Computed example of a mutant assay.
Amino acid sequence: MSRSVVYARRAAATVALGVLAVGCQDSAREEAARGGATPPSPTATASATAPSPSPVATTAANTAEVCREVDRAIVAGSRRIATDSAASVSRDLTGEQVADQLRRNLAKLADDVRAQARRAADPQIRALIEDTAERIDAGSRAPRPAAWMDATFTGIPPKLTRECRA
């Protein structure tokens, strides 16, 4: 097996595992978005006399939901990358085949992230997520996507953790 194939597989697996670890912060973010409280019961929210949520509360809820879904998309995409990387060993793929597979996975991930950007009510959050999708798309077009993942992709989840919040 060539050195570049081994490097590509190792890089993809390492990055994917790192992203999966960051994705575990999703539950903490979800709890914080709820303010640490238990969600209201369905009967409490079904009251006809309950006031309508304010636009700010609605935007905050939308932001929390969209950010959570972006996290999920990145974790799912990272799992796909790790699974395909591991499977490429048994399939004895060439370096270029591994790179093409990684490009396809990154393009799918960018599409999934972009779909969440369209749902964002907050223009700043929409711009952040669109920028994230563009950055992932750049990786799908990179001549060496595994090197791009090492250099760039690893910084995406921490940035989203810091900036994607209500």
Rank of each mutant, 00 (worst) to 15 (best):
S2K: 13
S2I: 10
R3I: 03
S4G: 02
V6H: 02
Y7D: 15
Y7Q: 14
A11C: 02
A11M: 09
A13F: 05
T14S: 14
A16V: 01
L17G: 11
G18C: 08
V19G: 01
V22Q: 11
C24W: 03
S27A: 08
R29F: 15
E30H: 08
A32R: 09
A33E: 09
G35P: 03
G36F: 03
G36V: 02
A37I: 04
A37G: 03
A37L: 15
P39R: 13
P39C: 15
S41L: 14
S41I: 04
P42Y: 09
T43N: 06
T43C: 07
A44Q: 13
T45H: 10
A46N: 08
S47A: 15
A50H: 01
A50F: 02
P51I: 08
P53F: 05
P53G: 02
S54A: 05
S54V: 07
P55L: 02
V56Q: 06
A57V: 00
T58R: 08
T59C: 09
T59K: 05
A61Y: 09
T63Y: 00
T63S: 10
T63D: 09
A64Q: 11
A64T: 09
E65N: 12
C67Y: 06
R68D: 11
R68W: 14
V70F: 03
R72M: 10
A73Q: 10
A73H: 10
I74L: 13
A76D: 11
A76C: 06
G77Q: 03
R80E: 10
R80M: 13
I81W: 11
I81A: 06
A82W: 07
T83F: 08
S85H: 08
A86Y: 00
A87W: 09
S88A: 04
V89Q: 04
V89F: 06
V89S: 04
R91K: 11
D92R: 13
L93W: 00
V98A: 06
A99N: 07
D100R: 05
L102E: 11
L102K: 07
N105C: 14
